[in-house]
Simulated scan of single mutants.
Amino acid sequence: MDARGRSLLYVAARAADPAAVKRALILVNAETASARTASGKTALFAAARGGCREIVEILAKRADADPNARANDGRTALWTACYHGHVEAARVLVQHGADPSIPDASGRTPLLAACAAGSGTCARFLLSGACDMPRRVDAEVKEASAGCSPLFAACVDGDVSTVTSLLCAGAKVDAENKHGRTPLMAAAMCAHADVVLALMCRGADPNRADEGGETALHLAA
């Protein structure tokens, strides 16, 4: 272990080096996949961050691995993979029992993490039939301190494919964030014309005003 509590296995997984991971599992007999760093992360977290599907598979299938273990910040390996855009790692984790509904300490789910980070492929995977996600995502409208929904985050990013997927999954088109702003306002502010069109086609209200009295048209100017 180093000063930060990172094991040989953790470092190898973080480096996305399958051969080194296999050596670590053989050479360090006392070490298990559930060993944690000072920040509460296991080697599976490191593998999710590195994004190597093979390493995630090696670690996730071990009997001592917990795919839903939470670090000190409440994040899971799946949350980490989705935030960093590693859809294949996310797919393996879900196959091994990772729960896509577990939020971090601030209430942000893997879906919101993916949308906020611009990881559209991960967001769409979470919304697909491959995941046992609720078909309604309205509950994520105001996620604790995050104050916005996955739809709002996707509109800021300008990802029209993810916006469409979220709307099809039940996201409210006019759901407000903590400042009274809607996804349409976010798309207009960021000049994402295709997203604005997609929202308008779904019935977004262009005359709705935020807490400062500004509409999407005002914010786009």
Rank of each mutant, 00 (worst) to 15 (best):
P103K: 03
R49K: 02
C201Q: 15
E176F: 10
H84K: 02
D210H: 10
T109G: 05
A191L: 11
G40L: 01
C131D: 04
R6A: 11
S165L: 10
N29W: 11
I102C: 09
A123E: 01
G129H: 06
R181N: 07
A30W: 14
G129F: 03
A123G: 15
D159F: 02
E211W: 13
R53M: 04
S161M: 12
R181T: 01
S106G: 08
T182W: 09
L151R: 02
A90C: 03
H218M: 12
A130R: 14
A48P: 14
L126V: 06
A171G: 13
A12P: 11
H96Y: 13
G120T: 03
M1N: 01
P134H: 09
W79F: 15
L8P: 12
A12G: 01
E57L: 09
V28N: 03
G129T: 04
V195K: 01
L25R: 01
A175I: 05
D210P: 11
C115W: 09
D73W: 04
R208I: 10
N207P: 01
A63W: 04
V163C: 08
R4I: 05
N68D: 02
A114I: 09
D174R: 08
K61A: 14
R202Y: 11
T215W: 09
V156I: 14
A33M: 09
A169S: 10
V160I: 05
A187C: 02
M189K: 06
V21G: 05
M200H: 11
C82H: 01
L167R: 03
A19P: 06
A65W: 02
D66R: 06
A38F: 05
H84M: 12
A153C: 04
R4S: 14
T164S: 15
V28R: 00
T32K: 03
V92S: 02
T182K: 03
R4E: 14
A130E: 15
L59S: 04
G213D: 04
A220Q: 10
R91V: 00
H179C: 14
D132M: 06
P103I: 08
Y10N: 01
F152N: 00
G50W: 11
A175M: 11
A90E: 00
H218L: 06
V156K: 09
A33Q: 09
A187N: 02
S149F: 11
L59M: 07
A20T: 00
V11P: 06
L25N: 00
A38Q: 07
G212T: 06
K41A: 15
L127T: 03
R53T: 00
F125H: 09
L127D: 00
C122Q: 01
A98Y: 09
H179E: 14
A71E: 07
L93M: 08
A198I: 07
S128M: 05
E54L: 03
G212L: 13
T121N: 12
M1W: 02
M133P: 06
R135E: 15
V156S: 08
I102Y: 12
N72K: 15
N29E: 15
K172V: 13
R70A: 11
A175R: 06
A188N: 05
A191H: 13
D205H: 14
